[in-house]
């Protein structure tokens, strides 16, 4: 399994194992922020950036500090900084890293693109609790990726999430002009459309498979 190249994992994370469409992580901001393509693109880029960076940092933190020496040896990795096993901290540490990174991204966006900052509004700081981001870090550990694979996976998951929300935003913009039966307007039709997109993405399933 560790033989899978980072590129394959990247493509798989975008298409066959899209974190949003197959694992249904990060649904809240996906539904809430997909009204306009412009906002969706901005949020997609922000999520991709945060995902890539946090998987890389969390990789370093997990295998550099949290894991025990024996386990590292068993997995054939370099000895960690601390020999004690403190992997029980992984959730809280991952979240702390993510929170700090989101703050940083928020400052960047506010400084260099106030327009995007206002468009994203509350959803920018809420990336912190976007489950896709914590999910990617946890998948990285569960699936035993090496560093290149982790970064590829993080980036791929981000691109996949961005792709899904941009598709969704495009469809919702079109749907503004269509005559939807009244009970389906708003969130219900968004859910149905999400299902259809997810089913369409299942068409990629035979291409590559990652666990």
């Amino acid at each position: 399994m560790t033989e899978t190249s980072a590129i394959v994992i990247l493509i798989a994370a975008i298409l066959t194992n899209n974190i949003l469409l197959t694992n249904f992580l990060g649904m809240c901001s996906f539904v809430a922020c997909s009204g306009q393509i412009r906002t969706a693109v901005g949020l997609g880029i922000a999520v991709t950036f945060v995902l890539t960076m946090t998987t890389a940092i969390n990789y370093a933190v997990y295998y550099g500090i949290l894991i025990s020496a024996e386990e590292a040896a068993e997995l054939g990795r370099a000895a960690p900084l601390l020999s004690t096993d403190i992997t029980h901290l992984s959730f809280i540490v991952f979240i702390a890293v993510i929170a700090a990174f989101v703050q940083l991204v928020e400052m960047f966006v506010e400084r260099f693109s106030p327009r995007l900052y206002f468009a994203l509004g509350i959803f920018l700081p809420l990336i912190t609790v976007n489950c896709a981001i914590l999910g990617a870090s946890l998948f990285m550990v569960i699936r035993g990726y090496n560093f290149a694979q982790s970064v590829g996976f993080g980036f791929g998951a981000g691109v996949g999430w961005a792709l899904a929300i941009i598709l969704m935003a495009g469809l919702r913009q079109k749907m503004n002009y269509s005559n939807i039966p009244e009970p389906f307007r708003g969130v219900p039709i968004a859910m149905i459309v999400t299902c259809v997109i997810a089913m369409a993405f299942m068409g990629f399933a035979g291409m590559v498979a990652i666990q």
Binding site: L82, A96, A100, L104
Partner: peptide, 18 residues
């Protein structure tokens, strides 16, 4: 001890970065 120390130093480093 190690849990507290490592989590503490990690958050301090992140706060300093911010």
């Amino acid at each position: 001890l190690w849990s507290v120390l490592s989590f503490g130093s990690l958050t301090t480093a992140l706060a300093a970065l911010l």
